[in-house]
């Protein structure tokens, strides 16, 4: 039994055409016993950044509070909001600070990055539990259903999906992947972000 699989849960993020999506399941369990079907693992960081924190549930809350503190301090000192790219580096260094006694979390970051020309482009990233960053151009996955998510996403994802199509793709990918995983499922939440708004939808899944 690994501590990474103790509470269960999975997160996925995908890039679309001028949009990004991030989604997770809602289960909290203690090994195979389900405790809650409404445990949020994805948190808003700014209006343009979301972070998903699958892994040990205790560290989900601890890291969420830690990131909230660091982002607030950044906002006050810099007098501007943090960019997704910068936030990803903050996540990485926060985790690497605990290199030899890590937080058992594999964060997934999704956001809209401001370009020098003033437009916005989609940004996704993921790290392992000690903060090794993975900047992907298509999709990133993490959590107990990560291998199932890789398979489903590899088959369903295609480049330049519009926001509504991206929502359908990420939802089907997540729902089908978590149904093959004992430790994930029990409903899902999906956030689809474009340059000016975020649409959040809660999905019903198989409750078994």
């Amino acid at each position: 039994m690994s501590i990474m699989e103790y509470n269960g849960g999975s997160v996925i993020a995908m890039v679309g055409k001028d949009c990004v999506a991030i989604a997770s399941d809602l289960r909290l369990g203690v090994q195979s016993l389900s405790i809650s079907s409404n445990f949020q693992k994805i948190f808003p960081v700014t209006d343009r950044i979301y972070v998903g924190l699958p892994g040990l549930a205790s560290d989900v809350t601890t890291l969420h509070e830690q990131f909230r503190y660091r982002v607030n301090m950044y906002t006050i000192k810099e007098e501007r909001e943090i960019e997704p790219q910068t936030f990803a580096q903050m996540v990485s260094s926060t985790l690497y600070e605990r290199r030899f006694g890590p937080y058992f979390i594999e964060p997934v970051i999704a956001g809209m990055q401001r370009t020098p020309s003033g437009s916005y482009e989609p940004f996704i990233a993921a790290t392992d539990l000690i903060g090794c960053l993975n900047f992907a151009k298509d999709f990133v996955v993490a959590g107990t259903a990560s291998s199932e998510l890789f398979g489903a996403a590899e088959g369903l994802w295609e480049p330049d999906l519009e926001a509504e199509d991206l929502f359908e793709t990420i939802s089907q990918t997540l729902l089908n992947a978590v149904d093959r995983d004992t430790f994930s499922g029990w409903g899902a939440v999906v956030h689809v972000m474009t340059k000016d708004k975020v649409i959040t939808r809660t999905l019903k899944g198989r409750m078994d």
Binding site: L28, I35, S36, A57, S58, T61
Partner: peptide, 21 residues
């Protein structure tokens, strides 16, 4: 519902121990 690891979640009902099963 809170456990010794520091897991916190709000629940409509909860239990601890063997009785929880």
């Amino acid at each position: 519902w809170i456990d010794y690891l520091g897991t916190l979640t709000e629940v409509p009902f909860g239990a601890h121990g063997y009785g929880s099963y």
